[in-house]
């Protein structure tokens, strides 16, 4: 039944001759959401018979691939600017959220015990705070016994959306970071050692005494790493997790940026995690492969409505319902076939 309906819709809307085969959606991009996209794709295939082939080649690669039109959708941890979206004829919407989490390797300190704030984190990565017993860290952690040990900052050596979100937050809270280092997926780091991928940073932090790094929360949790709390914009110490990311998402003004391109760093609110991060999907307003694109939108709609529990189980944070409503409205208004009919309508 379901398959017949999909095929009918696809052929009717896209005016392409449909075959008796299931539709393959192809996507490429960010590595950060790969585990949840894979899990969703698996469940979706069981339900509908349509499969999603997602290649986690990195955000930069995802943007390149969608611009080269080799995939149905691209995925990126860093949003495109409004100008870029307009020039390339793409639309963009956030799919799922996570958080960037500082992790440390210090003897005798347990997960969540240490508290850091943005300026301190920036100064550590600027090379100005060199030892764990520095006054700035001691002031935030009066109850902890801090060793006189050199800090080894660990960061990404490859371009990364995680780095983009991390640097964006540091630039928000530290004028010096903004001026000296700036914000990008790859940076000229003043100090520290580079490691490839979230798993590389996690591995290096685990192996190096006195180190600090930043990883996606899921990596910190899975590897049982010593994550730290952070002081947020409201001045409260918060721990990373889905509740604090949701709080940050709730305080964000999603419609303030084109393509919902809001960086969730440093959001107001007592419970907001200051390094929350969303990941985006990129699609063409007038896609060439209509059937695949229509099916991709159906998949995303399915993930928004039925995928929350699966996201939770992997420590991702689902998008708030009001944002999802706006996203679907945008689909109907913006993504159209050659004859100007919307590819997605909520009824089918």
């Amino acid at each position: 039944m379901k398959f017949a309906k999909i095929a009918l819709t696809a052929s009717a809307l896209a005016l392409t001759s449909w075959t008796a085969h299931a539709i393959d959606i192809s996507g490429a991009g960010a590595t950060f959401p790969y585990p949840i996209y894979a899990k969703w794709a698996d469940a979706y295939k069981k339900e509908t018979g349509n499969s999603l082939n997602y290649q986690s080649i990195g955000s930069g690669g995802g943007i390149k691939q969608i611009k080269a039109k080799t995939v149905t959708f691209g995925a990126s941890d860093a949003p495109l600017t409004g100008k870029d979206l307009e020039e390339s004829g793409l639309v963009q919407f956030p799919m799922v959220m996570g958080s960037v989490t500082p992790v440390v390797n210090l003897e005798g300190i347990k997960p969540g015990e240490m508290v850091l704030d943005g300026p301190t984190l920036a100064n550590i990565y600027l090379g100005q705070i060199k030892s764990w017993d520095d006054a700035a860290i001691a002031k935030l952690n009066p109850s902890l016994k801090l060793p006189k040990q050199a800090i080894v900052p660990v960061r990404r050596s490859d371009g990364s959306g995680t780095t983009y979100n991390f640097a964006y937050y540091l630039a928000e809270v530290s004028p010096e970071w903004k001026a000296k280092v700036g914000v990008n997926t790859a940076l000229q780091w003043p100090v520290g050692i580079g490691a490839k991928g979230n798993e590389g940073v996690a591995g290096n932090v685990a192996q190096t005494k006195g180190s600090i790094g930043y990883v996606e929360y899921a990596y910190a949790k899975e590897n049982k790493m010593t994550f730290t709390k952070l002081i947020n914009k409201a001045g409260k110490a918060v721990a990373p997790g889905s509740d604090t990311v949701q709080a940050a998402a709730a305080s964000a003004d999603w419609n303030s940026q084109p393509g919902f391109g809001v960086i969730l760093a440093n959001q107001p609110g007592d419970k907001s995690w200051p390094m929350a991060a969303a990941t985006w999907i990129l699609m063409y307003k007038k896609p060439e492969k209509m059937a695949e694109s229509a099916e991709a939108l159906k998949f995303f709609a399915w993930a928004y409505t039925k995928g929350d529990a699966m996201a939770d189980s992997l420590d991702y944070v689902p998008m708030p319902d009001n944002v999802v409503k706006d996203i679907m409205k945008m689909w109907s208004a913006e993504i159209k076939d050659a004859s100007g009919k919307p590819l997605y309508s909520p009824t089918n």
Binding site: G60, G61, S157, G159, T185, A186
Partner: peptide
């Protein structure tokens, strides 16, 4: 090896 895939 580190940077090529993600060089924007």
């Amino acid at each position: 090896a580190n940077e090529f895939t993600e060089a924007v």
